[in-house]
Amino acid sequence: MTQVGGHTERVRQRTHEGFLRYKGFRWAQFATALCVLAIGAYFVTATRLGRPPSGNSWLGYTLGTVSAGLIVWLACLGVRKRWITDHHYSLKAWVSAHVYLGLSLVVLATLHTGFQFGWNIHTLAYVLMMLVIASGAVGIWAYATLPSQLSHNRGETTRKQMLESLEKLDQQIHDVAQPLDRHGAAIARLSIELTEIGGGFWTRLTNRHGDCANRRALEQLRALPSSASARQAEALTKIEELMQQKAEVLALARRQMQITAMLEAWLFVHIPATFALLAALTAHIISVFAYW
């Protein structure tokens, strides 16, 4: 289409593909090839040796070196992500490689162990690595499925607009509550002053806001005996409406925070486990060479 009608072409088209499909699954193919190569080498060596090659065979050392190198490189994604340089790089390519090479470690490192496990630092490093990979797999699932839910949930409302509309509703409740008696005013204050939008990470992740002050205020409001003064009654009806609106906005904001929390939750395992892994890996390597 770029040449129809003979107009001059402009900015080149940039490919539009997600990190999983990057360059036609280039890194998936590379990682698969790596695994197939490792498994092949393993079985050829195993049949020659007559027993599974352990970590201290030449194959074991090769697999171990490759795996350790990969682990360190994979951990560098955290730096790459934040290090904004001027030259050409693509974080998407990094993430794509991170995902597939990380998954390939399941094969490479397992073959490196020679299936010898025990209650020692070596197995600890292996277990930590598997934990990192498992949490990473959860991350892949989250990144592949949650964004559309996030987008669908918020529509065109931004986070800031949600907070602003809550603020506005609070202001309106405050204004309408002026003619109320002490008891009514206390209910309005409950909703205005004590409603927590988010709360702790766990609350956000589970989206359980059982003691939501706005909800309690709404319940108390509905339980009030009908008021004698018409002015009061009118104000109460209006406040009920406003609190109902507030509850809806809160539900939207909290669902948004829940999905955002889900997008982050796996990182709370992935990152600390990575650091533990790096420590265990260092201990594993030092001990192997110290007790050669």
Binding site: G18, K81, S90, L91, K92, W94, V95
Partner: peptide, 8 residues
């Protein structure tokens, strides 16, 4: 664009 981790 370079810094987008997912290609969005």
């Amino acid at each position: 664009v370079r810094a987008c981790p997912t290609g969005a």
